[in-house]
């Protein structure tokens, strides 16, 4: 970059190699072209406005709110860290919600990754009809989550649902007594039902990203392994998996973040029930803010959620050295 003509042209004559060493530049307060300076802020004007009004200020405001008690009617009341201490020590619902969300985060990403990789590997064999399969598998990704959740609610409904009916038919046909669970009405099955919907909805995305990753794996590696007599499984295990590990890492991080922020799925399918068995953190934030009018508490939960996501992402980034294989370029 340092050799680009513009940079040379704009480079102040007094300093040498300013780009790497000048702390003023790094802080962004030295060495600029005054011409571009004013121009740049015109380019940035709207963006900065949006950034400050809809992102920076709300972050500060939310943080402030999390130390208040406020029902939007009477003036906010400062309560120190009591919102947080209440949450962490004295809120059974929050504990349940946290457990539910951990269940989502522990199940959805692994299932999606495994299925997505499997589908991508199957499609990457040079098989005919790749385009059609990809269109079909990707279809749920573009659909409306509310409509999709309604369909699954119906598929699993205990009175009219297709899946329970099939189990009953299986009963009649074989005489084996299996009673279909009341998926959406049982505290045990409500969460897996939400997971089922989420996986169906998003696995196509995982597959498409994996397909792109697989296409970057050099064919020579497989050929060499074949010559050495490696089996299909060995080639998959020792070439495919390490070669797509950076894709896996990326997908794992974003899907984990997504799983922690589930809202519409339980909102439509189960209303968080039964007995809060499928209530997610974001749903609990929604309830506190917009049903119970507890703005301070809702903000505090949001910040706890941020802390959890931040910590988990941080741990994942720290752990990636152990298993993510980055190709050395060049």
């Amino acid at each position: 970059m340092a050799t680009q003509p513009t940079e040379l042209a704009n480079k102040p004559k007094s300093t040498s190699n300013w780009r790497d060493s000048d702390w003023k530049y790094r802080l962004g307060i030295g060495n600029w072209n005054p011409n571009q300076q004013s121009e740049a802020y015109i380019f940035l004007l709207l963006s900065l406005l949006g950034f400050v009004i809809f992102v920076v200020f709300p972050i500060v405001y939310s943080f402030w709110l999390s130390f208040q008690e406020w029902n939007l009617l009477s003036p906010p009341e400062f309560t120190g860290i009591s919102n947080y201490t209440q949450l962490l020590t004295n809120d059974d619902t929050f504990r349940r919600v946290l457990k539910n969300t951990l269940f989502y985060a522990a199940t959805i990403p692994p299932i999606q990754l495994a299925l997505g990789l499997l589908m991508a590997v199957a499609l990457n064999t040079g098989i005919k009809g790749l385009g059609i399969y990809r269109v079909i598998y990707f279809m749920p990704v573009v659909t409306n989550i509310i409509a999709a959740a309604m369909i699954f609610q119906f598929l699993l409904d205990k009175n009219a649902g297709l899946i329970p009916s099939w189990v009953w038919q299986f009963n009649e046909a074989t005489g084996i007594r299996v009673i279909p669970p009341d998926f959406l009405g049982s505290t045990f099955w409500a969460k897996p039902s939400v997971v089922l919907l989420t996986v169906w909805k998003n696995v196509g995305f995982t597959m498409v990203i994996y397909l792109a990753g697989l296409q970057g794996v050099p064919e020579v590696l497989y050929d060499a392994a074949k010559v050495d007599g490696a089996s299909n499984w060995q080639r998959f295990r020792h070439i495919t998996i390490p070669m797509v590990s950076s894709t896996t890492f990326f997908l794992l991080v974003i899907q984990m973040i997504g799983a922690f922020q589930l809202f519409a799925e339980p909102f439509v399918m189960t209303r968080g029930g039964p007995a809060q068995a499928s209530l997610s953190i974001v749903y609990y934030i929604y309830q506190n803010a917009f049903e119970f009018q507890k703005m301070g508490k809702a903000s505090a939960i949001a910040w706890v959620l941020f802390a959890i996501i931040f910590a988990i992402t941080f741990i994942q980034i720290r752990l990636q050295k152990r298993w993510v294989h980055y190709e050395v370029e060049g």
Partner: peptide, 25 residues
């Protein structure tokens, strides 16, 4: 090139880590 470019851009990137529910309320 303008004053505060890299700082500002880093700030933009940093806010990407904030989940939407924090901004919602």
């Amino acid at each position: 090139r303008f004053a505060g470019r890299d700082t500002l851009f880093t700030l933009y990137l940093a806010t990407l880590m904030i989940p939407f529910p924090v901004l919602l309320i």
